[in-house]
Computed example of a mutant assay.
Amino acid sequence: MRGVEELRAGIEDIALVDHHVHGVVPGKLDRAGFESLLTESDRPIPGWMTQFDSPLGFALRRWCAPVLGLRPHATPEEYLAARVSLGAEEVTWRLLAASGAGRFLVDTGLGGGLAELAEASGKPVHEVVRLESVLEDVGRSGVSAADLPARFQEELARRTASAVGLKSIVAYRFGFDFDPRPPERAEVVEAAGTWLGEGAPRVSDPVLLRFALWAGVERGLPLQLHAGFGDPDLDLHRCDPLLLTGFLREVEPRGVDVLLLHCYPFHRHAAYLAQVLPHVHFDVGLALTHTGARSTAVLAESLELAPFAKTLYSSDAWGLPELHHLGARLWRRGMAEVLSGHVESGDWALDDALRVARMIGRDNAERVYGLESP
């Protein structure tokens, strides 16, 4: 009888589309530098603790150590020594290959990463352009306030000529409790005048952020929005995707897909929005690596309500190739455990479980972003 082992093998065989990811930090890292990339905090790690003693740190020692030729649960010292011995290039190649990802959609807002990730992985990569980065570049170009709206739209069109999507970090810069309507041009020019007069620092004015968002909607590409937890720049209570309901309703008639990223601890809220609004999709990407051994529970919760055609896979990995591998490994393990339970209980047929796993891991992203199968 066909069963759970066939399901697990089928999930392992999926060439994942990592629909939201970043590049890898090149070169050697000392222990402090390595551990700083195991947390969303931007504060120095206290001397009395280590980030290896975290859900992510334990998951790394369990799942990444064997890829580097170590026993599972190798000590941090053994793991870091193996990294040095193998060299950064070999470590990156091994971990990216172990992820089984078939292609990467790279948010270049943290700086580059496209060519490097393509070379290191040998897989297709596609660019996702960050709206706020484009606006800040235009603001620092010497543009006048009156010319900024048109110049931004021109530059956005140029930067996205070959991109597959857009990304906004309005969650970090202001929060989701903004006026959902497009701002008037006079509002934008006035806000731009103030901002440019300050030297065009990091953009946080809600009028300018709304302007960038709506310019992105008008561009017509799928729009990614960070939601839920992240580094201390954000106020988590203002990053609940339910606060976006008004904006999402305004966007719906435009026919633009919106993708809510990560969403933890609001992933059930995101699933609700994905159920009731046809253009809304979501993932739990970053949450899986950071919850480690409990990631299966988070993944199971994300599958409670939303249609399976509205859920995608991402790792949101940045800096360490370990995070690319862990995102994929924990997703595959979680999907296998959740769906095998459904099959064994008789609630689901095996073929349906395999089909849903492929939808979430690959097919949905190919449809939303207009990608051809690799």
Rank of each mutant, 00 (worst) to 15 (best):
L236Q: 06
G220F: 12
G346S: 09
G292V: 07
P321T: 09
S314P: 04
W348A: 07
F247M: 10
P265G: 08
A306R: 07
E304M: 15
S340W: 09
H262K: 07
S302P: 11
H324D: 05
P265Y: 09
D257N: 14
E252K: 15
M335A: 14
H342T: 03
E301T: 09
G246Y: 00
A274K: 05
K310A: 13
H281S: 15
L299R: 14
L303S: 13
W318Y: 11
D235R: 15
R268S: 13
L221G: 02
T311K: 14
L236D: 06
R294T: 08
E250S: 06
A336T: 01
G220D: 12
F308N: 11
L236W: 03
L259W: 04
A309H: 15
P278A: 11
G230W: 12
T291V: 06
G341L: 09
G246A: 13
S295R: 09
P241N: 08
D316L: 02
L326R: 05
T291K: 11
E218P: 08
F308Q: 12
C239D: 00
A349R: 14
A270K: 00
A309I: 07
T245N: 07
G292D: 02
P232R: 12
C263V: 01
F282R: 01
R332H: 07
S345G: 14
L277E: 10
G346L: 06
V343R: 06
W331L: 10
T311E: 05
V280C: 08
L273V: 04
E344W: 05
P321S: 08
G246C: 04
D257R: 13
L286E: 14
Y272P: 00
G230P: 05
